[in-house]
Simulated assay, not measured.
Amino acid sequence: MKNVGETREAPMGTPQDDLATGEHSTRGRVARSILDHGPSTVAELADRLGLTAAAVRRHLDALVADTVVEPREQRVYGSRGRGRPAKVFALTDCGRDAFDQSYDKLAADALRWIATAAGGGEKGEAAVAAFARARIAAQIEAYRGSVEAAGPAGGARALADALSADGYAATTRAAPGGQGEQLCQHHCPVAHVAEQFPQLCEAEKEAFSQLLGTHVQRLATIANGDGVCTTFVPRTPHGAATDSEPLTERTAGRNPA
């Protein structure tokens, strides 16, 4: 009978995705056991999970490489016996965050409270929009120097680089028809909250427009179920497009995802 720890597993995505989506891979079970029981030795993990020590070490090596867990010397309280303390494996902050799903709920609850405190209805929506604009303004101000230094021709690329440094995995590509560029954000840290509060996406689009000095058009968002947040950045100066053919999804180019 083949040991469960020696079965061949399907390739994994990022460790955070694997753990957060609850896939019952053996590697995820190892990490979950450490979360539930605290820093653990190889022997303890093997005993709890019914795996061989060799199988546990293999999965721990992968988790260490992915910065999900880290090895430490076991803390000993009271008198310590002879010999080196046993090595234990503990979750890193990155690994712990993969299991923690409370941040989105906290943010959504806070925005809901803002809307209610402002009186609900249109007043509540306006209050959330004001918060969204203030939030993105503080973030985008840090990008201004590099975007302005890049000039009109390189502004979108500089913005993508700045967004990538903040975890948005942003790229640019030429838009179909040669009218401009598509700024693509392949990751959105606030996507789940933005599903409930689209003011976050709208404020971001407005901030991009102000920073780049031209109107931009949002073609797709992760919060709306698209694979990528895609923003069309025209090469024409602000307002010039309105003098000729208005921007549409056909003229701007479709979302590449």
Rank of each mutant, 00 (worst) to 15 (best):
L111Y: 12
A117V: 02
A134N: 14
V88Y: 08
A115W: 02
R144E: 14
G83L: 05
A90W: 13
R84C: 00
A132S: 10
R84I: 07
R80V: 09
A137D: 11
Q101P: 00
D93R: 13
T92D: 12
E125Y: 04
A130E: 15
I136Y: 05
A107D: 03
R144P: 01
A98G: 10
A137E: 03
G95Y: 06
A118G: 03
E125R: 08
A142C: 06
F131Y: 14
A115C: 03
S102R: 11
A108E: 15
A127F: 01
S102T: 03
G83W: 02
K105P: 01
A130H: 05
A90G: 15
D93G: 06
S102I: 02
G83N: 06
V88F: 07
A134H: 10
E141L: 04
T116H: 14
L111C: 10
E125Q: 14
S79A: 10
A126R: 01
G83R: 02
A137W: 00
Q139K: 15
Q139Y: 08
F89D: 07
R112V: 11
A142V: 01
A134S: 15
G83Q: 01
E141G: 02
A117Y: 03
F99D: 13
A115F: 00
A138V: 12
C94D: 12
A132N: 08
A127T: 05
A142I: 03
A137C: 07
F131T: 04
A126V: 01
D97G: 10
D100L: 13
A134G: 14
D104H: 04
D109I: 00
D104F: 09
W113N: 05
I136E: 04
A134K: 06
D93M: 06
A117M: 07
S102D: 13
S79T: 08
D97W: 05
Q101Y: 06
S102K: 04
R133V: 03
A134I: 03
A110T: 15
Y103M: 09
A115T: 02
A108F: 09
R144S: 09
A110R: 12
A107M: 14
G78D: 09
F89A: 06
